[in-house]
């Protein structure tokens, strides 16, 4: 018994404080939020007892369809954002993988946007994605005019239904470099011998990438998708700085903020819990997968 304690004790003591803090401030507060989301607490007054799952049901039965609209926006944003970063990240990684001249320079150039905060880039993109057309055009639309490409002018994020695709552009611009870095690391992690062996066997460059290198990038791709995926689901600052809180671009995290400011605590908690559940559905299987893979190796 004592021997066991000696083996486990110091380690446990070391991580103890962080365990306690985690238990209180992460899991404790998640528990508190879940509990709150089940109550009738829709103003600054104390709770009026439990309402079961009513708060969740009301989100989906609201006749304006606000929450469904939020989820649709989130879906569009997530798909475009994940797809965009993946495509650009992979493209740039490929370009740099062939040992370009000034590789270090380009790597820095592509990575730099990541150092900018979403708020700062949001303010700039807000101006770039000016929805005015014709005489009122500004930002990208006026560049299109200058290039005699007026047919490309559009309303950006104010486009009904699909506007969130435009909202994803700044996010893609910011994070493609990061995904590129992941892929470069992935390429460099593949032993040179494999490339040489493929070359000896007479594989063309296309075949080399298609048959030898890409298959080994699956874990990298998965990590990239998970990272961008969970970022996009929590996206708040970018949207707030580009459009502010308003119907067209509202996503669940903005909705939480709106309801919280109007003291509808239970509804805000319900949205937050729902969002957490959606993120968990994506992340938990990945964590299990990684855990297993680590045990195997």
């Amino acid at each position: 018994m004592l021997l066991r304690l000696r083996r486990w004790g110091p380690g446990l003591l070391l991580i103890g404080p962080s365990l306690i803090v985690l238990a209180i401030f992460v899991y404790g507060l998640i528990g508190y939020t879940v509990n709150l989301s089940l109550q009738k607490r829709h103003d600054a007054l104390p709770s009026e007892g439990y309402a079961g799952l009513d708060n969740y049901k009301n989100l989906f039965t609201d006749p304006t369809g606000r929450f469904q609209h939020n989820l649709w926006n989130l879906l569009i944003f997530t798909l475009v954002f994940m797809g965009g970063t993946l495509i650009f990240g992979l493209l740039w990684a490929l370009l740099l993988d062939v040992r370009t001249r000034f590789e270090g320079f380009f790597r820095t150039v592509y990575l730099f946007p990541m150092a900018v905060s979403f708020v700062a880039s949001g303010v700039v993109w807000r101006w770039l994605m000016n929805s005015g057309q014709g005489d009122n055009a500004g930002g990208i639309n006026s560049i299109f005019q200058g290039l005699h490409l007026s047919f490309l002018e559009n309303k950006w994020w104010t486009t009904p239904t699909w506007g969130m695709a435009a909202m994803a552009m700044p996010a893609i611009w910011q994070l493609s470099g990061y995904i590129m870095a992941l892929f470069i690391a992935g390429f460099r992690g593949i032993p040179v011998e494999l490339r040489e062996a493929a070359a000896v066997d007479g594989a063309s460059t296309w075949q080399l990438y298609r048959r030898v290198l890409f298959p080994q990038l699956t874990p990298t791709t998965l990590s990239a998708l998970i990272i961008t995926g969970h970022m996009s689901m929590k996206m708040f600052d970018l949207i707030m700085s580009v459009s502010g809180a308003q119907w067209i671009t509202e996503v669940p995290s903005v909705y939480v903020w709106q309801t919280l400011l109007t003291y509808d605590y239970a509804k805000a908690a319900a949205i937050a819990v729902f969002l957490l559940a959606v993120v968990a559905v994506v992340i938990v299987p990945y964590l299990i997968h990684v855990n297993r893979a680590e045990k195997r190796s």
């Binding site: 606000r66 609209h69 119907w247 509202e250 709106q258 309801t259 400011l261 109007t262 509808d264």
Partner: peptide
């Protein structure tokens, strides 16, 4: 109106502006 009412009307108005 209260802040909650303002929020609900604002959201409905925003939707109307699009559809």
């Amino acid at each position: 109106c209260s802040q909650g009412w303002q929020g609900a009307v604002g959201s409905a108005q925003g939707k109307f502006s699009t559809d």
